[in-house]
Computed example of a mutant assay.
Amino acid sequence: MANYKLILEDDFKDEFSLIAIHCSVEAYKMAFLLNQHLSLQLKRRRTDLDFSKHGLELSFPWFEFEDEFEYTTYDLLANSFKTINARTIASGGLFNDEASAELITEYLIPELKSADYLLKITSESQKLPIRKLLMDLNEINQVISAYTVEIEQLKSKNNLIFD
């Protein structure tokens, strides 16, 4: 009887470009600025990008725009999620309970901790004007810096595949 071996290859490679943005404004303001300066139409999705990590429920704001004429999808994601973890420590007495709170910050892409936002651009056409897009992004007053990220270098690139 013959043995057959099934070889599974990673054919699910999603080709996209990634831009890291350093900016201290809120997510809705960042989407507004991109809409205004880059002529996009980013809108907040009904559901955010949700993860469960270390027992915490993480929710990253997610804005999306599908350009039907250029066959391009733009996804703006916040890279960090901050929450307060409150603990009560009982010391055994009636009134000696101590309450402590710690600020916990989790990242969508931990390798890019300094980036505030990620702009994922998925396109079916091979000619994307990334340089012009970067120049326009860096000319926004509130944006500190924006640069492209090599996706192959990221260990947590699977966090960006959410279709």
Rank of each mutant, 00 (worst) to 15 (best):
A2W: 06
N3F: 09
Y4V: 12
L6D: 12
F16C: 06
I19Y: 01
C23L: 03
V25K: 00
E26L: 03
Y28Q: 10
K29W: 02
M30K: 00
A31S: 12
F32A: 11
L34H: 04
Q36D: 11
H37E: 15
S39Q: 15
R44V: 14
R45Y: 14
F51A: 06
F51K: 15
S52P: 02
E57C: 06
F60T: 08
F63K: 01
E64C: 06
E64P: 00
E66P: 01
E68G: 07
E68W: 07
Y71T: 13
L76K: 01
A78E: 09
N79W: 02
K82S: 13
T88H: 09
T88W: 00
L94V: 09
L94C: 08
F95T: 10
E98I: 13
E106G: 04
E111W: 06
E111Q: 13
L112H: 08
K113V: 01
D116E: 06
L119W: 02
I121H: 05
S123P: 05
E124F: 09
P129W: 11
P129Y: 11
L134E: 09
M135W: 04
D136I: 00
I140W: 02
N141T: 10
I144A: 04
Y147S: 11
T148W: 00
T148E: 09
T148M: 05
E150Q: 10
E150N: 13
L154M: 06
K155T: 04
S156M: 03
K157H: 12
N158I: 07
